[in-house]
Design a protein around this nucleic acid. Structure first.
Length: 188
DNA sequence: ATAGCGATGTTCT
DNA sequence: GAACATCGCTATA
């Protein structure tokens, strides 16, 4: 078992914050890009009214029922792609929505894909476009596929807030933001 | 700086 | 027919 693999498991809201600070590496069309994950959201199964798996399996959410490490990619509002990582064993639906990152490799490629130089990865649709994640990657594994999660988290603080863009179970604080630990604070 | 709105695939009522 | 785990453009301030 890899070190990253051991970070998955447990309820989605427990696994989600563990992914913060890790690297999401993309090798698509022969181009390498990578980000450090800084914003994620947890989605559960039948017990989470905001989850795509709340009503049971469908053609769209099938990947959520795969083993931990499975990528669940869905189309949002008919336009954008959004990527999740499954964190529970096969048969138990779960998802950690990847909502934001900081580019650490392939910045030129990312800016070309995004068609701009700002707001490269802040938002699930933007993050997917930056790393060229599409429906083709639905069901692939983040341990051996074209999109991988690697490394160990850098030191930082995790802040929990309510999930955004949903209308049900809005009170659950299942959105997690990574605040890097300052290496040095000249003002303190 | 904030508000409104159009685009549009899949699911749900 | 309506809602939706969004985004980028446009208008108004």
């Amino acid at each position: 078992m890899t070190s990253v693999e051991s970070l998955l498991g447990g309820e989605a809201f427990e696994a989600a914050p563990r992914l913060l600070g890790l690297r999401l590496v993309s090798d698509v069309d022969g181009e390498r890009t990578a980000v450090t994950l800084v914003e994620v959201e947890a989605y559960g199964g039948a017990d989470d009214p905001a989850s795509h798996a709340h009503r049971g399996p469908t053609a769209r959410n099938a990947a959520m029922y795969g083993p931990a490490g499975t990528l669940y990619v869905y189309r949002s509002y008919g336009i954008h792609w959004c990527a999740n990582v499954v964190c529970r064993p096969a048969g138990t639906p779960s998802a950690v929505l990847l909502r934001g990152g900081v580019v650490v490799d392939g910045g030129d490629v990312v800016r070309r894909r995004r068609g701009r130089s700002d707001h490269l990865c802040d938002g699930p649709g933007r993050l997917a476009q930056a790393l060229a994640i599409t429906g083709d990657h639905n069901g692939t594994s983040v341990f051996d596929g074209p999109l991988r999660i690697e490394g160990a988290a850098a030191p930082g603080v995790v802040v929990a807030t309510p999930r955004v863009g949903i209308t049900r179970a809005v009170e659950r604080p299942w959105r997690f933001i990574f605040v890097p630990e300052p290496v040095d604070n000249p003002r303190a």
